[in-house]
């Protein structure tokens, strides 16, 4: 018998707690597969955020550290600077990274910290119950923006990848999504490239993944994917935002 598919060795044998249609599980899998393919499960350290993926250290097979809300880039700095030859990855949502942790991510990028950040952008605070994030789209409803996000009151959503790309320390930034197999394959390639660039020591590497949060968006999974492609991808264009040659 030939094995055509198996669960990545980068994942632990545990049931995920994520909601149906949530993108976290897929992104976990891609991170795990990339670590496995690069042979770094045994040396990598993952830094988890506060948010739905707070438990990522229970799902990924590599060593992991749980950071305070928004501080994953600082925690990763402490690890990577003292373990320069090991893969260090932060996995952060948009509330964590773009709101409370805005200073930490900007300065990690400015310093060109040689770790990779996987940025989960689902335009909402997931774990706390659908509050407005800095990435929530104009007009999008949230539990703290019941009439939808308004520019005059809340400002316009932040395009983190583009903002970080202005910093010399950022070596690579790409925005991807995992709504279907072609996009998923592209996302995996981006993550793997980021890891490879990190290990070659070029600088800070960043992959923004547009993700669905059907529960807090109040949509069925397929509908959520459709909404993502029509609305989020329109405001947050997919593709390579910056790439510095190694």
């Amino acid at each position: 018998m030939t094995t055509v598919y198996r669960k990545s060795a980068g994942l632990q044998d545990r049931e995920l707690h994520y909601c149906p249609g949530c993108s976290h599980g897929i992104v976990h899998k891609l991170v795990a597969e990339c670590m496995e393919e690069l042979g770094v499960i045994d040396t990598a350290v993952l830094v988890c955020p506060v948010g739905c993926s707070v438990f990522a250290g229970h799902y990924l097979a590599c060593d992991a550290v749980e950071a305070a809300h928004g501080r994953a880039p600082a925690v990763a700095t402490g690890i990577k600077r003292t373990h320069p030859d090991q893969l260090v990855v932060t996995y952060q949502g948009d509330g964590d990274l773009a709101s409370i942790g805005a200073a930490e991510i900007v300065h990690a990028a400015m310093r060109g910290e040689k770790f990779t950040t996987i940025f989960i952008n689902n335009a909402i605070f997931g774990m706390t119950g659908g509050q407005m994030a800095p990435t929530t789209l104009l007009g999008q409803r949230a539990t703290t923006a019941p009439h939808g996000r308004q520019k005059e009151i809340h400002g316009s959503p932040i395009r983190v990848s583009e903002m970080l790309a202005t910093l010399d320390g950022l070596a690579y930034a790409e925005r991807v999504c995992v709504t279907d197999i072609p996009h998923l394959n592209k996302a995996k390639k981006a993550i793997k490239k980021a890891f490879e660039l990190q290990l070659s020591g070029v600088g800070f590497t960043f992959v923004e993944v547009l993700c669905a949060c059907p529960t807090n968006w109040g949509m069925a999974p397929l509908e959520a994917n459709k909404w993502l492609m029509e609305n989020m991808a329109a405001y947050y264009p997919l593709g390579v935002i910056k790439e510095v040659q190694a």
């Binding site: 830094v47 550290v65 950071a67 305070a68 600082a74 925690v75 402490g78 690890i79 600077r81």
Partner: peptide, 8 residues
């Protein structure tokens, strides 16, 4: 938090 990371 860098201390936290390095200590971890």
């Amino acid at each position: 938090n860098m201390v936290y990371g390095a200590a971890s």
